[in-house]
Amino acid sequence: MMKYIFTIGFLAAGSLSLLAQPKAKPKPATAKKPVPASASATAPLKTMADSASYAIGVNIAQSMKKDLGDLNTGILLDAMKATFDGKKPLLDEDALMNVIMAYSEKAKEAQAQATIDAGHTFLEKNKTQQGVKTTASGLQYLVLKEGTGEKPGAADTAICHYRGSLLDSTEFDNSYDRGEPLTIPVSGVIKGWTEGLQLMSKGSKYRFFIPYELGYGLRGAPPTIPGGSVLIFEVELLDVKKGS
């Protein structure tokens, strides 16, 4: 969900923790000494409630402008005023949430478009490379070493070493460096891993090229993995623990 929705939720609970923090520690304001009105304010900020209302409005607007830049602000303000006045919304609760989520996804896709395009270009070229295979889902993989042991199923647990990187070779995770393999349920990882692990036999080492749809999606995994990123993993399957 977008930042402004989180902000509204926290404020409704009485917290101002998501408001932007200034670099210098501000002097505490009191009811006896109202915060002065800024030059951009449309009316004097005479009380703490006035100042808080203004600060909250700026905070919400800044988040929405950054993430959802092409909103119709006239309709937005009309909807907010109608809601404060207790008028019935034009959309029911389910429709409201569906619209917000769909629009949020559209905004995230627009923000990640350059990364998505770079990933598509890479995968189109990569699938023609010698030894690279592509599954029906779009997962690409290269066998670096083929094992002879059993293959894990969706209900099993895999024990593996791995390293993960982005297209620009930025490494974001490495179990070898930690000195300890990962033990993880096969169905408890991103889709690209769940599918890829079941292709491997114990003792195998594969390289996975995972489209963003099978990875961390449009959201990514900030701050290390941008939304829409293709992920490259080298995975070594050390052992398989069968599920019950």
Rank of each mutant, 00 (worst) to 15 (best):
Y141C: 06
Q198K: 15
L144R: 05
M200P: 01
C160I: 09
K191D: 05
V132Y: 00
L199A: 08
E124W: 04
A136N: 12
S169A: 14
S187R: 09
Q130F: 03
T134Y: 02
S175C: 12
H120P: 01
T194R: 13
L197N: 01
K202F: 00
L182E: 13
V143F: 01
H120I: 06
K202P: 01
I184E: 14
L142V: 05
A118N: 09
T183Q: 15
L144H: 10
T121I: 12
Y141L: 11
L139C: 09
T170D: 04
N174A: 11
E180L: 14
I190A: 13
T121W: 02
I184L: 15
G192A: 06
E124I: 07
R163E: 07
L139R: 04
T170K: 14
G196L: 01
I159V: 14
Q129R: 13
G131D: 06
G138H: 06
E171Y: 05
G119Q: 03
H161V: 00
S187V: 09
N126R: 10
G188A: 13
D156C: 11
G196R: 00
R178Q: 14
D177I: 11
K133N: 12
T128A: 15
K191H: 12
L144A: 03
T128N: 10
G149L: 07
T157S: 11
S137L: 11
V189S: 09
H161C: 02
S169I: 05
G188R: 09
G153C: 06
P152T: 12
L199T: 05
G153R: 08
G192R: 00
T134S: 10
L182C: 12
L166R: 08
N174P: 08
T128Y: 03
D168T: 08
E195G: 07
S201I: 00
S137W: 05
V186K: 03
V186Q: 02
D173H: 05
I190Y: 05
T194F: 01
G179W: 10
K202R: 10
T135A: 13
A158I: 07
L182N: 10
G149I: 08
G192C: 04
F122S: 04
G149V: 10
T134W: 01
S137Y: 04
E124H: 08
K127A: 09
P152K: 12
F172P: 02
T157M: 11
G192H: 01
I190T: 11
T194A: 15
G179S: 11
E171K: 13
E146A: 13
L139V: 10
L144D: 09
K133A: 13
K151L: 06
E171R: 13
A155D: 11
G138Q: 07
P181N: 14
I184R: 07
R178N: 14
E150K: 13
R163W: 15
Q198E: 05
S187Y: 05
T194D: 11
T121R: 13
T148L: 07
A158H: 04
K145N: 02
G149N: 09
K127I: 07
A118L: 10
A154F: 07
K151R: 12
Q198D: 02
L144I: 04
A158R: 02
L139Y: 08
L144P: 00
S187W: 02
M200H: 02
T183I: 13
C160P: 00
I159M: 07
Y141N: 05
L142M: 14
G192W: 00
E146Y: 06
K125T: 09
A136F: 03
L144G: 06
P181S: 15
S187I: 10
L142F: 10
G196P: 00
E195K: 06
L142P: 03
